[in-house]
Design a protein around this nucleic acid. Structure first.
Length: 264
DNA sequence: TATAATGTTAGACT
DNA sequence: AAGTCTAACATTAT
């Protein structure tokens, strides 16, 4: 479910609530996730994000690091309530509880996060796409990659945090067809992609993410960026800038929305 | 009942 | 050897 803007939303909301608070206890309901060790009594020293990973720091060199994958959610509850269905673990504080809810059970958590799958990718090109970056860095790496540009953008060793929804939106904004080989784009096209990436991700953060089905923020509220989507979940709608119609096709297993007439 | 879902990876294939 | 593709993970909703 969550891509960079959704995880950033949780990060910002969580920071305001749990920074400086002490963990009273942790309850783990899913035996798959028994990877949180020795955190009771620890104080939260920072909450940060790296790509789609959320990092809850508990010591100078320790953190609870989680990845929500497809359907993971975090929910803050004041006081004590019954956990909703599919609650996988709960972190208890004096003033409330932080719940992780995940129907599909793909989410992963670790305190010894060096063993967390995907966490230490080597050779990440763009660490933080919320900041502007030189497009020629992308062009240089892409020059030797023959895979579709959409797969390239979603590769977590290239730009940290871009997933399926925002990759579709970025390529529409930049008027680039998702099936184009990464090595075939001009520097001008990479500049357009770079600009679209920063604009779209920043706006999506300001909107607290995109709710098309599962996504809810820390307080259970919908995001607002779904009202700004141009192509994702818009199959059959008229294109907003040409006479074309938005189509949906499968690209390496993922639903890919695009305008076949103006994305060249 | 069949299909698709906002992510990632191990292993197969080229 | 390195780059790319596919199935699998587990479950719900349409």
């Amino acid at each position: 479910m969550p891509e960079l803007p959704e995880v950033e939303t949780l990060c910002r909301q969580l920071k305001k609530i749990i920074l400086g608070e002490v963990i009273e206890d942790v309850k783990i309901m899913d035996p798959k996730l028994e990877m949180i060790h020795d955190v009771a009594g620890k104080c939260i020293t920072a909450v940060t994000r790296r790509g789609k990973f959320l990092e809850i720091h508990i010591d100078n060199d320790r953190a609870i690091v989680l990845h929500l994958r497809m359907t993971g959610r975090l929910l803050w509850q004041d006081g004590r309530h019954d956990p909703p269905p599919h609650t996988r673990f709960v972190i208890l504080f004096a003033k409330g509880s932080l719940l992780c809810i995940d129907p599909r059970r793909f989410a992963t958590v670790r305190t010894d996060f060096k063993s967390l799958p995907g966490y230490f990718h080597s050779g990440v090109v763009i660490e933080d796409p919320l900041c502007r970056f030189p497009a020629d860095q992308l062009e240089e790496i892409a020059r030797k990659r023959k895979l579709p540009v959409k797969s390239f953008l979603m590769d977590q060793r290239v730009i940290l945090g871009v997933g399926n929804i925002y990759a579709c939106e970025i390529l529409y904004e930049a008027s680039v067809n998702p099936w184009r080989k990464a090595c075939s784009l001009s520097i001008c096209e990479w500049e357009n992609i770079e600009r679209a990436t920063a604009t779209i991700l920043k706006k999506a953060v300001a909107c607290r993410g995109t709710t098309v089905s599962d996504w809810r923020d820390l307080f259970g509220r919908n995001g607002e960026y779904q009202h700004e989507l141009n192509v994702y979940a818009h199959e059959g709608d008229p294109c907003r800038r040409c006479p074309g119609v938005i189509g949906r096709e499968r690209l390496s297993g993922r639903g890919t929305y695009f305008c076949p007439s103006c994305q060249k």
